[in-house]
Amino acid sequence: MTPAQLITFARGAPSVDIVDIAGLKAAAIRAFDTDSSIVTPYGASTGYPPLRAWIAAKHGVPVEHVLITNGSLQADAFVFEHLIKPGDDVIVEKPTYDRTLLNLLKQLQAKVHQVTVNDDGIDTGELRKLLESGVRPRIAHIIPNYQNPAGVTLSLQKRHELLGLAAEYGFTIFEDDPYIDIRFRGEALPSMLSLAPSVPGAAEAVVHASSFTKTVCPGVRIGYLVASPSVINPIAARATSLYISAGQVSQGIVYQFCVVGDLDKSIATVSAALGERARLLAESLRRHVPDARFTEPDGGYFLWVDLPDDVHVDKLVPAGIEHGVAVVKGSDFLLEGGEHSLRLAFSGVTDDQIDEGVRRLAEAIAAVRG
């Protein structure tokens, strides 16, 4: 690594060194050897049948409740397009994924309400007050595990509270969960999808989305939805009219990768690598930027940093580029605020880049202050 190389904490994607290239090559060969007559033509818009069945078994639902998409962002777009009309109230987290906030919901002309995210997830008390004030959301978009961008996890208690509110006020919880398997420590929490049948009135309140992007590799572009057929069927019809079927070859490769156990090995590799990177990033921030405030994540790709009020990210981001480090400003994830916050992605940097990257960020902060 030379000083001229840009170190980027901006992109939420795994570095190539932790992608199981050999496993994917072998899976591709098996996909063509065992099922070439199915993976090479057009397929059904609901997805490649063996992978669809594998996903259904993973979530303990009938196969009719699963639809495979070209990445989880397309799953998001389908759900929003199906459920939201212009002017509908929508709940999102504060902060939330910028493509959800800016690219999708604003295009649909939804009335977006952001609800504060705490260390244990969305503030359900604040949400209840909003509901009691008369707001009637069509949907609440929640990233429950290792949230993008805040890195926090929704507690079990709050999962139950959200389901209760959905049942009481009649809105859909869109559980957007691509990071669930990238866990460094702690016990896995049950999804709201799995909890919903035990909450009176919430049995069909959850639409669940996830992806193989974070656990296999981004290039496979395979996401999926799990929901009742009343949601899945019209979305499948829409998918047929848009692109006939999601990429069959990619689905065949992912299925073969999963069915022989390589997905579990990949999850273990990615989780171990990113856990170490998260630890190194936190150590480096404490050393080089001691007045930064952050919650060290238990999994996922991201760490959210709050900086002192004399550091404005509109100045810091370009200063960072000048010093050889890329970050994303917190204001990108908020309707208002975030001018003194950053999202740092530790997924795409190698261990030896992290301390140098944070040192460069500290130099940029000093330059902005000066």
Rank of each mutant, 00 (worst) to 15 (best):
I38H: 12
G71I: 01
L307R: 01
V199Y: 04
Y146A: 07
L189D: 12
E339L: 08
A345W: 07
P178L: 05
V325C: 00
L189V: 08
Y243E: 08
T40R: 14
L281C: 11
G23P: 03
F257C: 06
V79W: 03
D310F: 07
F212G: 04
E168L: 09
E356R: 02
I182G: 03
R30T: 06
V259L: 03
D352E: 12
Y97K: 13
D306P: 07
V327K: 00
E276T: 12
H208R: 03
S228N: 15
L316V: 07
A10C: 02
M192K: 01
D20W: 05
A367M: 09
S284W: 00
S211H: 02
T69E: 01
A56D: 03
A75I: 04
M1A: 13
G261C: 04
I21Y: 12
I38Y: 10
R52N: 04
S266K: 04
A188N: 14
S228I: 09
P3Q: 01
Y97V: 11
A140W: 00
L307W: 00
E175H: 00
K214I: 08
F212N: 06
A77G: 09
T116Y: 13
G338L: 03
S341N: 08
P144F: 02
S72N: 15
R286E: 10
G247S: 15
G121W: 00
A326E: 13
L189T: 09
L274G: 03
H65C: 12
V19S: 01
L101A: 04
F171T: 04
R359E: 01
G324A: 04
Y169F: 09
N70T: 11
G164C: 05
T213V: 11
A326N: 08
T153L: 07
F80D: 06
H208Q: 07
N103T: 14
T2P: 12
A167E: 05
V358D: 00
F32N: 10
S250R: 04
A57N: 15
F78P: 01
V328E: 06
R128F: 07
S241K: 10
T69C: 08
L73M: 15
L342A: 00
A203M: 11
Y243I: 11
E132G: 09
A167R: 07
R11S: 11
S155N: 09
Q256D: 09
F171P: 03
F9L: 02
E283R: 10
H340K: 05
M192D: 04
S250G: 05
E132D: 12
A4T: 13
A362P: 02
D332L: 15
Y48T: 08
V66Q: 01
Q107F: 15
T8N: 02
E322I: 13
L156Y: 12
V311I: 09
D76M: 14
V249K: 07
S230L: 11
A4M: 10
K58D: 12
A57P: 10
R279C: 05
K106N: 08
P41T: 07
R277E: 03
G12C: 08
P318N: 06
S191M: 09
L83H: 05
P144R: 06
G125H: 08
A44L: 13
K158F: 04
G324C: 05
V259I: 13
V92K: 02
R52V: 02
T215Q: 12
F78Y: 15
V16S: 14
T2C: 10
A272Q: 11
R99A: 14
L274A: 05
Q109V: 11
F302N: 11
G299F: 02
N70C: 11
L274C: 07
H340L: 04
V90P: 00
Q114A: 08
